[in-house]
Design a protein around this nucleic acid. Structure first.
Lengths: 163, 163
DNA sequence: AGAGCTTCGGATAAAATTGTCTTTTTTGAT
DNA sequence: ATCAAAAAAGACAATTTTATCCGAAGCTCT
């Protein structure tokens, strides 16, 4: 409807990293598994997030992806701007190239406030706020179960904070 | 952003027909020209609108497309339901298959009212209201000039209402 | 230095959307 | 009846989006 599949994967991934990032960099492969997303495709998306400056990548053992800034300072609009392009916030409902307050399509007067509402929502929602909602346990990040907490991961083992 | 190009063409076409339909059935070819849309493609879309019950088609000479009901009784949501499918109104922002009040994605609480606002807007906007906005002359239906009024069409000629 | 792991980058493929072309069918007018 | 005009229908092509595969490069630990 509003977002491409790519944007949806991107948001889910960054929220996942926000939730689990305290454990260190997160593997692309594992994020994909937890989200139920195609691994190689999601890998590309994470690369794009790196180029967009939202993620750091770390190669080799104990590598993976981590956020470049605090979840609270990273809003969804920044993700969407990368995945959908900057025109996302200016597009006309009917697809006109030229549609602004000066010269507009007939839907402009009624669509503009809704669009602004959407943008304001994407600006105000941060990885922190979304992650918190998931942490509370009332909401699911994916259709699959258990993409939530840094559940005890034996293979990765050894983190002193694990019980 | 929100609508596919197909939906945008469909809406523009039906509004065009609402504006010019008093002159009789409108040619697919001519609608396409006025809207600056690919003719053969738009032809398919109009066919779909026929199957969806929004348009009548008339073959042969003096053929074309006309509305099946009054512009005031045809809302944009009915068009979008055909072009985007019924799931349009229920889709999750993050793409979850299961996302409702009972079991939801973290964006659900904030996205739901916006989505409802969009739907309400598409329900309340009719071909009549959009056509009126265009008729007033303040708004353009396309990027091309002159897709508005039933401007005097010499080729078609002979309509007693023409000056 | 070497082994093992991970991202990176490019090529490729599948699927969906958008767009084109050609033939057939139907219709109204002559 | 015949003809011209229009939509209908189906095959095909281009483009975009989504997805896969594989070798190369970089990193960490031993």
């Amino acid at each position: 409807m509003l977002l491409t599949h790519t944007s949806q994967y991107a948001i889910q991934s960054l929220v996942y990293i926000a939730l689990n990032g305290t454990e260190g960099p997160q593997l692309s492969r594992e994020i994909a598994a937890k989200l139920g997303a195609p691994s190689a495709y999601l890998s590309k998306i994470l690369q794009t997030m790196c180029k967009g400056g939202l993620l750091h990548s770390h190669r080799g053992r104990l590598g993976g992806f981590s956020l470049t800034r605090s979840p609270a300072s990273l809003s969804l609009i920044q993700i969407v701007n990368i995945t959908e392009g900057a025109s996302f916030t200016t597009e006309c409902l009917l697809g006109l190239k030229q549609c602004s307050d000066e010269t507009a399509c007939p839907m402009h007067p009624i669509w503009k406030p809704i669009k602004e509402h959407i943008i304001q929502m994407l600006e105000s929602q941060t990885l922190a706020s979304v992650a918190d909602a998931v942490r509370e346990g009332k909401y699911r990040l994916t259709d699959l179960p258990g993409a939530l907490h840094p559940e005890i991961n034996a293979e990765r083992g050894g983190c002193p904070f694990d019980a």
